[in-house]
Design a binder for these strands. Sequence first.
DNA 1: GTCTATATAGTGATAGAC
DNA 2: GTCTATCACTATATAGAC
Lengths: 241, 241
Amino acid sequence: MRDDDTNTPAANLALRQSANAREDQDATSKDARPRRKASIRASNESHLLACAEAVFAERGFEGASTALIAERAGLPKANLHYYFPTKLSLYWRVLDDLFEEWNAAASTFDASDDPAQAIGGYVRAKMALSRRRPLGSKVWANEIISGATHMQDILLKRVKPWMESRVTLIERWIEEGLLAPVEPRTLLFMIWATTQHYADFEAQIRALAGKRALSAASFETTTEEVVKMILRASGARSPHA
Amino acid sequence: MRDDDTNTPAANLALRQSANAREDQDATSKDARPRRKASIRASNESHLLACAEAVFAERGFEGASTALIAERAGLPKANLHYYFPTKLSLYWRVLDDLFEEWNAAASTFDASDDPAQAIGGYVRAKMALSRRRPLGSKVWANEIISGATHMQDILLKRVKPWMESRVTLIERWIEEGLLAPVEPRTLLFMIWATTQHYADFEAQIRALAGKRALSAASFETTTEEVVKMILRASGARSPHA
DNA sequence: GTCTATATAGTGATAGAC
DNA sequence: GTCTATCACTATATAGAC
């Protein structure tokens, strides 16, 4: 929600206020008051979450300050602490949000029984996610680099089970001769690393390959290039060929 | 130098002092004084650099504090500022150090005219570096994620020229039919992303694959698995086959 | 639900005795 | 070359008027 207006505090404030105003117009009936309040809360919270994602991405958890997040959101710091009592509670909400997106992309892995389709589709979904929400990917990366102290639960209870079942699936594909005898986890790590690189190492890619390399058209081409290379790496064959 | 004693301040102090004592024993001649002083400086500086690398890796530049770095080194904060006037100067020294290692690994790319040898050797060198100095890789990753503001010079003047010439080389291999028609930069990014993942995402790998996955023997196997997959992805053929 | 003012602790950096 | 004491500043978080 409004995840592209995280730059100047002034612009943010203007957007935020017009959004509130729009919601106020609908609030004409008797029961409007609680609905409007709820809307204000929802609007401010999601706006703060978007700004927090940007600041956590740029400076990590310890380096981020609630003052800077509030400033970007065009709100006083005390307001931020009204919605999110502690910096950690705000951070957790951001991480939780990110996992939901991760999970949505993960589900594309099961879209087909054909390994080339499944893996190709998953790589495309991960590349699209890197493109659409690079800041989120950076927050995740920062969290893992810093030791993943706040993500042990997500990793162990949510990500690990997903990985285990996908490992089993990949092993079956190998047995059926549809994939080269790869180590399934190594393949999955390679997919994650390569696709997330286009979000996390954006600044390096820009410096080395020029910003045109990150244009929409170029990103499409790169995505298909990555798909091709990952499929070759995994030795995927069509089941009916 | 002593890059594995960055855990407890007490242990660090003990090691540091015994190192100094060892150096003091050699300082018996007249001209020993300046040499001993130089040794103290060199020893303290490199010890501080090692501890700084660990703290910058865990918390990023903004999140790291000179107090914490000094504490890990078993030195008072004022001492750190005696050797490194500002936090930024310390950070730059760490980045500079890291680039030297990056550069050493990069040179392995030119060890052979055979693309399979060159690429395979480079992947092994990068995996070995991830294994030997994961904290350094994390500092680099953190710096790029945060926008690479302090690394523009290194990226543009050192990394980019290296990449350009390697792109030309890869394009020649493709013309000669020794490589599949891949986009050279996409291949290089894939190599970097995949190999550095084993350093930067250590915590995630540990959580998902268990710590035995990061044992020495397992890492060797994984390295060869990664080499195999990258070579397949690039479609490398031997020039004399 | 908003926001000024502030409590308390930590920050980078320095002075100056040893 | 070492280290205590301290400066000016910023951090998270809260109180309490509006």
